[in-house]
Design a binder for these strands. Structure first.
Lengths: 184, 184
DNA sequence: GTCTATAAAGCGATAGAC
DNA sequence: GTCTATCGCTTTATAGAC
C-alpha cells in the first residue's frame, strides 16, 4: 500500500529541480516550502542541517543516478561500444534533451563549489576517468583516451550552457550527436 | 592628473569579479561595499537601479571587451587564420588560463538568465556566428563552419566548468589547445 | 559624491505544542 | 511528522544631512 505522507526520498528530486532553477544561494526555504508542500518544521525534520544538507542529499542522489545509469554501463558492458552508446542515450535522457541543466556544473562555477567541493570534484573526475577507461578498451591509446574523455565531458557541459543561453535545447542535442559521431 | 575619487567605470571590473565569485543572487550589497570601498549611498548614486543595474553594466562591459578583442579581429583580420589565432590567444588571456570563469555562462544556467536574457543570448550568438563566418572564409562549408563554431564556443564553456570543478586550470588550457589544433 | 540612520521585508533556523 | 509563533540577523533600498 502506497504511503501518502511525504518521505525524504520523495522530496529530493523536487529539491533538485528548485536548486536547478534558482541556484544554491538563490533558493530560499520559503520557495522550497512552496514547491514541496512541506513547512519549515517538516523540512528541518528531514534535513536537520537545513539547506546545506538538502543540497548534499541532492548531489548524492545525482551521483547515485549517474553511477547506476552511466558509469556502471561504461565499466561493465561486454562491448565498450555498447557502453558508450548507452552513456550518450542516458545523458540525453537525463538532461531532457537539453531542457535541463547540470546542477553539479552550475554549483562548480561560483563559491557554491567550496561548500560541496568533494562531491563536485568526484562527479566529474569519476565520469572522466570511467569514460577514458572505456575508450581505452575500445582501442584508443592512453593519452588519446584521456583527452577524448575530457573533450566529451566538457563538451556536454558547454552544450548545456550554450543551449540555455540561447533558450534552444536543440543546440544540446546536435552537439551531443557530434561528440558521439567523433567516436565512430 | 589622475582622479582619486572612484568613477563608475573603475567600479565595474570589481563588480564583475564579485559576481563571478558569488553569482548574481549570492552577491550582496554589503559584499560589494566591502570590495569596492564604496558605501551604499555611493553605489546607488552610480547605479540608481541597484544590483540589477550593476550586473547589466558588467555584462555590457564584458560584451564590449569581446567585441573589441575577439569579435572584431575575427571579422577584420586580412587572414582568417590569424584572426582565429588571435581569438584563442585572447580567450586564454581573458579567462586567466582557466583560473577565471565565464560570468555570462554562469548567469545562463539558472533563473538569473531571465533577468538578462537579451545580453546573455547576444554574447553567445554573436560569438558563434562571427566565428562561423571566419571559419567559412577559411574554407569550411557553411554547415561544417556552423557546427565547428558551436563546438568551439561550447567547448570553451565546458572546459571552464570542468577546470573549476577539478580546481585545475590546466584542464582548460589543454582543452583550449585541442580545440585550436582541430582547425589545423 | 559620500555620510549616518533607518525602514520594511525576507532570510535561515529554532521552540514547543500537538 | 506537522503546526504556529518567533528569534536574530541580513537583505535591498531610501531619506536627509553635509
Amino acid at each position: 500500500m502506497p504511503r501518502e505522507i511525504a518521505e525524504r526520498k520523495d522530496i529530493i528530486p523536487v529539491l533538485g529541480e528548485v536548486f536547478r532553477e534558482h541556484g544554491y544561494s538563490g533558493t530560499s526555504l520559503s520557495e522550497i516550502t512552496l514547491r514541496t508542500g512541506l513547512g519549515k518544521s517538516s523540512l528541518y525534520h528531514f534535513f536537520p542541517n537545513g539547506k546545506k544538507e538538502m543540497a548534499e542529499a541532492v548531489l548524492d542522489h545525482i551521483t547515485d543516478w549517474f553511477e547506476q545509469n552511466v558509469f556502471m554501463p561504461l565499466r561493465d558492458s561486454d562491448d565498450p561500444v555498447s557502453g558508450l552508446r548507452k552513456m550518450f542515450r542516458e545523458v540525453d535522457r537525463y538532461f531532457y534533451s537539453g531542457k535541463r541543466i547540470c546542477l553539479v556544473g552550475a554549483f562548480a562555477l561560483d563559491d557554491t563549489r567550496d561548500h560541496f567541493e568533494a562531491r563536485v570534484n568526484d562527479y566529474f573526475s569519476t565520469w572522466t576517468i570511467t569514460l577514458a577507461q572505456s575508450l581505452k578498451r575500445k582501442g584508443l591509446g592512453t593519452r588519446v583516451a584521456r583527452d577524448t574523455a575530457e573533450d566529451i565531458v566538457s563538451g556536454i557541459q558547454g552544450a548545456l550552457v550554450l543551449a540555455r543561453s540561447q533558450d534552444d535545447p536543440k543546440v544540446f542535442t546536435r552537439t551531443l550527436k557530434r561528440l558521439q559521431d567523433r567516436l565512430a
